[in-house]
Every structure is written in C-alpha cells, then in structure tokens.
Simulated scan of single mutants.
Amino acid sequence: MVKNALQAQLLKAGLVDNKKAKKLSKQAVHEQRTGQSDEAELKAKIAQDQQEKLEKDQALDLEKKRLLQGKELKAAIIQMINQHKIRNIDGEVSYQFIDESKVKKIYLNQQIYNALVSGSLVVAKESDGYAILPKALADRINDKMEGFIIVNNSENNEQTTDEEDPYAAYVIPDDLMW
C-alpha cells in the first residue's frame, strides 16, 4: 500500500510504521491539492529578496547622488575661484606659505602682499596653481567645502595673547623679511 519507493525503504528499515507512512502520504496529497507545500515559503522568500534588492539599490542610488553632488559642488567652487581671483598680482615681493607640508613661494606686488598679510586677501588652491581671493569669498567657499583655502591670515590676526607671557610685548610681525 506504500505509494513511493522512499516510504517503502523507510518501512523496510523500520524507521517508520504503516500508520505514520499513511499519514505522511495523505499529508503530501493534501498539500498537492491545496498548493500549500513549499510555494508559500518560496513566495515569501522571493518577496523578501526583492525587498532587500530594492533597499540595496536605493542605498546605491543615494551614494551615487551624494558623490555627484560633491563633484558638482567642487566644480562650482573652482568656477567661483576662477571668476573672482585677482588677476594682476605679479611683482617682486615673495610670499611663502605651506601647502601639503611643502613650502611654496609666489611673487606678488607690494599692495597685494600687504593685503594678504593683513588678512583681507587669502590664498586659495586653484587647479593649476594658486589664486588670490577676497576674504568674503573665501568665507563663502569654506562654508560650502573646506580644503580650498590654504592661507587665511585674518585668523592669525584675531588671536589673543596670553597675559602671563613675558614676551607678549615683543610682537613678531608676519611680514618679516629675512
């Protein structure tokens, strides 16, 4: 009376008895009629996989959008620097500053040099070199993205001296020429 070979083998081995074999075969027939076998689990698994894939795709899209916005912002800042940089700065006075742990030197005229030392102008990194920008524009650029402004002497001018410093009266000028 056993319907399939596996049940016959299980009966022969003594792992199941006739009642249990009949019950299992009835249960299998019932599941085939009603379609409740593994289809429900399969559908749930497929739906879960689709949901996970959708969440993963959304996360990738957000990451791509964030990278694209960063590139657009960087391009906009470079364009602002190119449009507003001071053009006629060539002169005989050298100004030295540190960029990425290297000492760089640019030659400026005396008026630009004085404004740079006083803090009303700043040095910004440009694609192929350095640009001199007004302080107000540098503040706007730093608000949007940091890393473009290299020298900002207005921050140094606003520092207060320690009252207990015995050398406070001896101020070392920033524009000291050696």
Rank of each mutant, 00 (worst) to 15 (best):
G119R: 00
S37M: 09
N88D: 15
A168G: 09
A138S: 13
S118M: 13
N142S: 14
Y95A: 11
S127N: 04
E155H: 08
E39K: 15
L42V: 11
A44Y: 01
L116S: 03
I81D: 00
Q58K: 15
D162H: 13
S154W: 04
P134A: 12
K102G: 02
E63Q: 15
M1T: 10
V123M: 07
V103Y: 05
K125P: 08
D162F: 12
K65W: 01
G14Q: 01
L10S: 03
V151R: 00
L11V: 11
A76G: 04
N157L: 05
G35Y: 02
K43L: 13
D139S: 08
A47T: 11
D165H: 08
Q159D: 02
I89R: 07
G129N: 06
G35R: 04
L133H: 03
A44T: 09
H30N: 15
T34H: 11
N109V: 05
L68I: 03
L67S: 09
D143E: 12
E55V: 14
D174F: 12
E163D: 11
L73D: 10
Q111M: 12
A124V: 03
N152C: 13
N109K: 02
D90G: 06
I106C: 04
E52R: 14
S94Q: 09
Y167K: 06
N142M: 14
E63H: 10
K104A: 12
K105A: 09
M177Y: 10
K71P: 02
I77E: 03
Q69S: 13
Q36P: 01
Y130E: 07
A59F: 10
K104D: 06
E155C: 01
Q7F: 12
E100W: 06
L176P: 02
S94E: 06
H84T: 05
V171G: 04
K22M: 09
A131K: 01
A47D: 10
S154I: 08
I46L: 14
S120C: 07
A44K: 10
G35W: 01
A115R: 13
K3I: 14
I89S: 07
